[in-house]
Structure formats: structure tokens, C-alpha cells
């Protein structure tokens, strides 16, 4: 894929993103979940938050497969994950971009179902919005859709990291391991 405009927004301290091409087969969802969970862990999220971020990614990919590609298992999905280092003003976080060549829909029509109306299905968008700080759908220029989701890492004293613990609450003193 071409270098995206998002890449141009990278700050010098930010690690380069990882970009992978998936095929729209549900059997690979587990691999995508593991990948995003591992990266989320490295930028400061605790186990529970990593699991929830994995869930948000899973729901996004399932929606592409189920609704975008009508369950076709041989279509492309591009996943890009941007780890964000802490700065003077933030504790870092993670941004996830999912792009596809599926049918385009008006982003304004994408919404979850009423949670009071308990029935199978329709929970994916609600889960994504509940878990992530920002969820934004848009049409890609020629075909397909793009989903951008981001979540800020918690303060270190709110969610200690496994393997590396920082007692500082100064964002700039946190390290991305």
C-alpha cells in the first residue's frame, strides 16, 4: 500500500507502524488479536484493557468480513497499528486503522443497536465505541472503507504494566519498552 497521510503525521518519537495484509477468513482473527494485544501491552495497557482492545479489533474485522465482504474468505483487509509513545502531554496509546475493498456505505448510517433490544447480533459497533476513545469510519478514495480507532494509555499509577513498571506520573518519563 502507498504511504498514507497518517504516516506523515507521525511524531519523531513514535515507532513506525506495523502494517499487515490479512485475508478475510475468520480463522485469522486470533492472530490479529494476539498482535494488537501484544503491542497494546508494550505501550502501557494492562491485561484487561489489552483484551478489550483485541475485542474492538475483532469486532471491526468481523464487521468487514460479515457485512463488507458478505463472508467471502478471500478478500483483502489491511491492518495498521500505530503505537504512540508518551509525550509531555499524553501517556501514549495505540491507534488502529483497518482498510478494505468492501462495498462502501455512508459512515453516518453505521451505528449499534439499542442495547435494551436484546437480540442476537448488532453489538460490534457498540463494543468498539465502548472500548476505544475514538472510532471513525470513512470511505476510501476509490473503493472500500477505512476505520480509524484510537485509545490513550492509562496513567501509569492506574494500570501498571507487566514487565516494566514506572512510578512516575509524568508522561514524558514513561518508556515504551
Amino acid at each position: 500500500m502507498k504511504k498514507s497521510s497518517r504516516d506523515a503525521e507521525l511524531k519523531p518519537q513514535d515507532p513506525k507502524p506495523i502494517k499487515i495484509e490479512l485475508v478475510s477468513d475468520p480463522m485469522y482473527l486470533c492472530g490479529a488479536r494476539e498482535l494488537v494485544s501484544s503491542i497494546a501491552h508494550r505501550v502501557g495497557f494492562g491485561d484487561m484493557e489489552c483484551s478489550k482492545i483485541s475485542l474492538a479489533l475483532d469486532e471491526a474485522l468481523c464487521n468487514v468480513i460479515r457485512h463488507g465482504y458478505d463472508k467471502a474468505t478471500d478478500q483483502p483487509i489491511w491492518l495498521t497499528i500505530y503505537p504512540k509513545r508518551p509525550t509531555d502531554t499524553s501517556y501514549g496509546g495505540i491507534e488502529i486503522i483497518i482498510e478494505d475493498e468492501a462495498k462502501q456505505i455512508n459512515p453516518d448510517t453505521i451505528c449499534g443497536r439499542d442495547l435494551q433490544d436484546i437480540r442476537p447480533g448488532g453489538l460490534g459497533v457498540h463494543i468498539m465505541r465502548e472500548v476505544m476513545d475514538e472510532v471513525q469510519f470513512e470511505k476510501r478514495a476509490k473503493k472500500g472503507m477505512r476505520l480509524r480507532m484510537s485509545k490513550s494509555a492509562p496513567r501509569p499509577d492506574q494500570a501498571p504494566r507487566i514487565g516494566q513498571r514506572s512510578s512516575s506520573t509524568n508522561p514524558a518519563q514513561r518508556q515504551v519498552s
Binding site: L29, R33, S51, S54, L55, D58, E59, C62, I118, R119, P120, G121, L123, G124, I127
Partner: peptide, 13 residues
């Protein structure tokens, strides 16, 4: 250890 909304939908059904 992990369940997504398709699992939830299965249990609701």
C-alpha cells in the same frame, strides 16, 4: 479466555 460478539449472539439465541 476470550469471546466476541458472535459468541454473545450465540448465547442470546
Amino acid at each position: 479466555q476470550y469471546m466476541d460478539s458472535s459468541g454473545l449472539a450465540t448465547l442470546v439465541e
